[in-house]
Amino acid sequence: MKPFSPACERNQEPILAVLADFFADRKRVLEIGSGTGQHAAFFAPRLPFLTWQTSDRREHHAGILAWHAESEAANFLAPIYLDVEMDPWPRVTCDALFSANTLHIMSQAQGWRMIEKAAALLPPGGKMALYGPFHFEGAPTGVGNERFDAMLRASDPLSGIRDFEAVRDHAQAHGLAFFEEVAMPADNRILTFVRQG
């Protein structure tokens, strides 16, 4: 059976609206942490100008491949192995990066490494979009995110919702200029960045 995430089902339309505009001039996107594969299955046929390269750790490949097998979108590519801690990262040609709901399930060190590697992978003018919950000035955006953050940290003290300002500043320090923050349903956000030359 294909894995299924209700959250993916709920958030895919509003994310698509942002990506269709922000990635309109892009050709190939690497999705970091494709998870169930649902986002790729939904986005690829609706963004036919983009080649959508999925990636994740090997334990998630079977689920992504199940969605891939049912898709008729030729631009939805089977997953490659990618762990943010691997060195080096696989050689991937891309001019865009997308990652959803990953920063808060990693340690901060792993999240910073993902941003640094993403910056190194993108060419000048390349674009990155990060989706998920974020705190602002150290405070949650709502009661739901406050509870979610507490649950994450109780399960793994190294995980947790990251501060927008820290993510923005770390990305900018590695050549990814902050472009825009877009409010999404359920107190989530998309943060967008452009690789400087």
Results as ranks from 00 to 15, higher is better:
R168Y: 10
T141Q: 11
I161T: 03
H170Y: 14
T141A: 10
G144I: 00
V143P: 04
A173I: 01
V143A: 13
S159L: 03
D169N: 13
L158G: 14
D149E: 07
G142N: 11
F136D: 13
D169T: 13
A166R: 11
F134T: 02
A166P: 00
E146G: 03
A154Y: 02
I161P: 01
E146C: 01
P157D: 07
D156A: 12
F136Y: 13
R147P: 00
H170Q: 10
D149V: 03
D156R: 14
A173S: 14
H174S: 06
H174R: 12
N145E: 03
R168A: 12
F136K: 11
D163H: 12
E146Q: 14
L152W: 06
F164T: 12
E165I: 03
F136T: 10
V167Q: 05
A154P: 08
E165P: 02
A150S: 13
D156I: 06
G142C: 07
A171R: 01
T141W: 02
T141R: 14
F134K: 01
H135Q: 12
P140H: 08
E137S: 12
G138L: 02
A166G: 02
E137M: 09
V167P: 04
P140W: 05
D156M: 12
F134D: 01
R162H: 09
L158P: 00
P157A: 14
G160N: 07
P133E: 00
H170W: 13
G144E: 08
H135C: 10
G142W: 00
L152H: 09
G142M: 01
F136I: 10
H170K: 11
H170V: 06
S159P: 05
S155R: 15
G142A: 10
S155G: 15
R153M: 07
A154T: 11
H135W: 02
P140L: 06
F134E: 02
